[in-house]
Amino acid sequence: MTAPPPIRCTGLSRWYGEVQGLSDLSLEVTPGIVGLLGPNGSGKTTLMRLLTGLIRPTRGRVELFGRRAGPGAWRLFRRIGYAPGDDVHFELESGRDFLVLLARLHGESASGARAAAERALAAVGMTELAGKRLREMSKGMRQRIKVAQALLHEPELLLLDEPLNGMDPLSRRQVMDLVREHGRRGGTVLFASHILHEVESITDRVILLHHGRLLAEGRLAEIRDLLDRKPRRVTLQGASPEAVRRLAAAALQSNLVSGLEFEGEDGLHLATRRLGPLLDAIQTWGEQGDVRALTMADENLEAVFDLLVGGEG
């Protein structure tokens, strides 16, 4: 029997009065890193709060590691680390004291708590700066303390809500490395972010929410393949002008392209509805040395996000 998945939601809904937070969400997250995406107000934070048991679902259920989650599921909390999106902390405390206090709340001994705090601080690169009071820290530093706080008890499941917001590029890199490392060791990370470029650099698995509903879930390339509304565009750069002409002729002969356009000396745009076979053909041409570069439009996360959420705003 396989182990139960870290996250399983069934028919999960949450309403705030008449305001819809999340509606009828069913999904399963297997170990690894998953990006949680969606425009502002799409229900990302509501989902995080439901998962951590901060709020109760109006309908449906959340299971973490096969156990029902919700307010008061204390045992589960030890296996989850949560970095909330909003700025909450004890203003007058130093970063280090704050973490030690939290570690003690997790049931550590005094010395164990100090060790855990130092470990978490080192992981986010705050060892030297943690003596400052939280109130006096910059936004980026407070963010790092927040992430450190989620790592304290070495949880299996990390829920990070916009963890990189306000961080400088070096700290971003550090936290992203940390997330990758957690994924590599078999942990699970749910990573909410607006910066698609960063999500894409740590994972190709995403959950996309929009207006409180699940819009798409899975691997980026698979999601893109499901969106077959318009032909895919592939751009080739030939090794030489002659090579470009050979490529164009071969493409036409292959019957795989629905459109073809030259650009400059060595550029060639192809439009296709049969991507797989075309890529295969291109690979063959490439092995013969005619192709110097290959790019595919709307393969990246931004394009997919736009295709899915697009059409409004």
Partner: peptide, 26 residues
């Protein structure tokens, strides 16, 4: 480019993009 395409073919992988690598600002 040729050697990359060949390597991918041997591994049975589809190539979705191939271009000279610029250094990112990061």
């Amino acid at each position: 480019a040729r050697e990359v395409f060949r390597l991918a073919r041997r591994l049975g992988l589809e190539v979705h993009g191939l271009k000279p690598a610029a250094r990112s600002l990061e």
